[in-house]
Computed example of a mutant assay.
Amino acid sequence: MRRLKRDPMERAFLRGYQHGINGKSRDLCPFTHPTTRQAWINGWREGRGDNWDGLTGTAGIHRLNELHAVG
């Protein structure tokens, strides 16, 4: 049975979130397509906000799982 791939926008968002929660720069965005890049930046912003709120380590992992379940 083939597994369905996740939505590319969801994947971009989650990758951006991971960069943001780890305090990495927004300039590291690997995407050039405008909509995919925007999804990555939205994830990065969400991750940066969580980083500033102190949701790093285990709390950040739980937050990432919540975001993944919603998406």
Rank of each mutant, 00 (worst) to 15 (best):
Gly43Arg: 04
Thr35Ile: 05
Arg26Glu: 09
Phe31Cys: 06
Glu46Trp: 13
Thr56Gly: 04
Asp50Trp: 08
Ile41His: 08
Gly23Val: 04
Thr58Pro: 04
Glu46Tyr: 12
Thr36Asp: 00
Gly60Pro: 02
Val70Lys: 10
Ser25Tyr: 05
Thr32Tyr: 05
Cys29Asp: 03
Lys24Leu: 10
Leu14Pro: 14
Phe13Tyr: 15
Arg6Trp: 14
Glu10Gln: 14
Pro8His: 15
Glu10Arg: 13
Ala12Thr: 02
His33Asn: 06
Ile61Glu: 10
Asp27Glu: 12
Thr56Lys: 14
Gly20Cys: 07
Ala69Met: 12
Asn65Trp: 14
Ala39His: 07
Gly20Ser: 08
Leu14Cys: 14
Asp27Arg: 09
Trp40Tyr: 10
Ala39Gly: 07
Leu4Gln: 12
His33Gly: 02
Leu64Gln: 12
Gly49Ser: 12
Ile61Trp: 11
Glu10His: 15
Thr58Trp: 13
His33Met: 03
Glu66Thr: 12
His62Gln: 11
Val70Ser: 07
Leu67Ser: 05
Arg2His: 11
Ser25Ile: 09
Arg63Trp: 06
Gly71Thr: 10
Ala39Leu: 03
Ala12His: 03
Lys5Thr: 07
Pro30Trp: 00
Arg6Asp: 08
Cys29Gln: 01
Ala59Thr: 15
Glu10Trp: 10
Glu66Phe: 08
Glu10Phe: 08
Glu46Gly: 04
Gly16Ser: 06
Leu4Trp: 10
Gln18Ala: 11
Ala59Asn: 12
Pro34Thr: 02
Lys24Asn: 08
Gly60Lys: 01
Arg45His: 05
Gly20Asn: 02
Arg3Ile: 12
Glu10Tyr: 07
Ala69Trp: 14
Pro30Ser: 04
